[in-house]
Design a binder for these strands. Structure first.
Length: 503
RNA sequence: GCCGCGUUGGUCAAGGGGUUAAGACGCAUCCCUUUCACGGAUGAAUCACGGGUUCGAUUCCCGUACGCGGUACCA
């Protein structure tokens, strides 16, 4: 029977959650959902020095915002916990010791300072099959001395022992096919650190095994250490249950090349993190897609198309469609440069087609911030009218503020060029008309406006701009008749009357 | 340096031995609209290079170049 599909996202809680991280989450999530499997969140907090308080909760919040909820994790629990490596601390040492007993690992007593000196002394120093013979470890020291050192609790690490006899490690990558490495080029990686914590290399293998992970989706930066992981799976005796590998292409800087980083966003003026992140130490705020006005569904859709497509040319996909269409075979091998303009285009598409109700919560918040309170029905009408011209949610306000306050200033220059006494009379007459009781709707108003213009033999086109300026204050906003319709009969009349003296 | 992975317009990319080499973003021009958008039309722009294999290579093979990643008691 096929093993149940179980995938995981395993971030380090060291700061904001990067675009690339979210995409890794997404691919994990899509695969799990499609295969009816489990999606696990595991926190890899084995580096005490880099631990940042709040980062874990931030990651959980980001996943929640994106709608990519884990089935198991530190916040939800599950039967494979704990889901924080710091809480599994005691688990790792026995496996490392087991490897030592079996001759696949050894104790190394070299201090960080000694190794640093070595690196200075020898240009391309590496702790490996050759250099280990000249260093202080349980392979070179007499057995008695090793025991004594261990007895005295001398700080030491446990390193993997890459075989002396070169061999080829072949791994099947679901994206790249067969990838092979010569152990000659592998180093003796530290498995267990002096502080008793495992390194990533030991921890992933142990935890992926214990948590019965079936498929590993991770960034391409892990490919070079994958052969060491394969060796660990083998030495620990678990190779038959080794997960299938998928090393995802990297997301690169829009200019130049290299992995996209937080700094690039600052430099080029776009977000890199999913949500705002404030560094607890420096207090520095890094902007996120959410706060800048992205809809999570647009953000996720954009990410899915960065390194994957279904071949049909379709670009807009709901999460459900993505789950349905996702396929590992169609993931690209090459990295993709991030294009913020395209990201904005996705958001624009989503806002344009979103229902006013979907946009209402964002709009209500913005309005509240600006100190306005209006009936929901009014907000919905406004949203409906302006949404198609909004790229970011924050544009909703920029395109509609005049619905909530009468203009204080008018772009008179735009009107005066062609202003005339006849036109002034027209607007006075229009205001009179609006003073009457009557039905109100966009077509009703437009008909009234047109017939009045016709009877006075003024071109409707020449009257629209002045009306716009009277209602909005300037040359902006959606269709004028639509604006008037939403404003209502009384407000429209009021604004015309208020503006007239300015011309 | 060494090892690994890549390379189709400016960007995301489809395609794959014979094609006018899709589509999208962006850009330009035009139409619509006396605001701005939306929408529509059109256009400029691509197979990194060199060798093979082949009647024929962008596609297959080998090199080269270039880019990226890794080379920590970080993940």
């Amino acid at each position: 029977m096929e093993k149940r599909v179980r995938v995981r996202f395993a971030p380090s809680p060291t700061g904001g959650l990067h675009l690339g991280g979210v995409r890794t989450v997404l691919f994990n999530y899509l695969f799990a959902r499609q295969q009816g499997g489990d999606f696990i969140l595991r926190i890899e907090d084995t580096d005490q020095a880099r631990y940042v308080p709040g980062a874990e909760q931030y990651i959980i919040d980001c996943l929640h915002w994106c709608g990519l909820e884990p089935d198991e994790g530190p916040h939800t629990g599950g039967s494979y916990g704990p889901y924080r490596q710091s809480e599994r601390r005691e688990l790792y040492r026995p496996f490392a010791e087991q490897l030592v007993q079996q001759g696949h690992a050894y104790y190394a007593f070299d201090t960080p300072e000694e190794l640093e000196a070595k690196r200075k002394e020898i240009p391309n120093f590496r702790y490996d099959q050759h250099s280990r013979n000249g260093l202080r470890n349980s392979l070179t020291l007499p057995e008695a001395e090793v025991q004594a050192l261990l007895q005295q609790q001398t700080p030491h690490v446990i390193r993997i022992k890459i075989p002396e006899q070169p061999e080829t490690v072949v791994l099947q990558d679901m994206i790249r096919g067969e990838v092979s490495f010569d152990t000659e080029n592998l180093d003796d990686k530290v498995l267990l650190k002096a502080d008793g914590m495992p390194t990533y290399h030991l921890a992933v293998v142990v935890d992926d095994h214990l948590m019965e992970i079936s498929h590993v989706f991770r960034g391409e930066e892990w490919l070079p250490s994958a052969p060491a992981h394969v060796l660990l799976w083998r030495y620990l005796g678990w190779e038959a249950g080794m997960p299938a590998w998928a090393h995802l292409p990297l997301i690169l800087k829009p200019d130049g090349n290299g992995k996209l980083s937080k700094r690039d966003g600052d430099r080029l003026g776009f977000p890199v993190y999913a949500m705002n992140w404030t560094d607890p130490v420096t207090g520095d705020l890094t902007h996120g897609f959410r706060e800048l006005g992205f809809l999570p569904e647009a953000f996720v859709n954009m990410l899915a198309l960065l390194g994957w497509n279904d071949g049909s040319g379709q670009e807009i996909f709901s999460l459900e469609e993505l789950v349905d269409r996702f396929s590992i075979e169609r993931i690209h091998k090459g990295g993709a440069k991030f294009d913020y303009e395209k990201a904005r285009w996705f958001n624009h598409e989503y806002i344009k087609t979103a229902s006013a109700a979907r946009l209402l919560p964002f709009f209500r918040d913005m309005l509240q911030e600006k100190g306005g309170a209006v009936p929901e029905e009014y907000m919905l009408e406004v949203i409906e009218l302006v949404k198609e011209r909004c790229t970011l949610l924050t544009d909703l306000w920029d395109h509609s503020f005049f619905f909530f306050r009468q203009p204080e200033q008018y772009d008179t220059a735009a009107v005066m060029k062609k202003w005339s006494a006849e036109k002034e009379q027209f607007f006075k007459a229009l205001a009179d008309e609006l003073g009457q009781e009557g039905e109100w709707s966009e077509p009703v108003f437009e008909t009234l406006f047109r017939s009045l213009a016709e009877s006075r033999q003024i071109k409707v086109g020449e009257l629209q701009l002045p009306l716009r300026v009277m209602l909005c204050g300037g040359k902006f906003g959606p269709a004028v008749f639509g604006i008037a319709a939403v404003l209502g009969r009384a407000a429209t009349r009021e604004r015309i009357l208020a503006a007239l003296p300015h011309f």
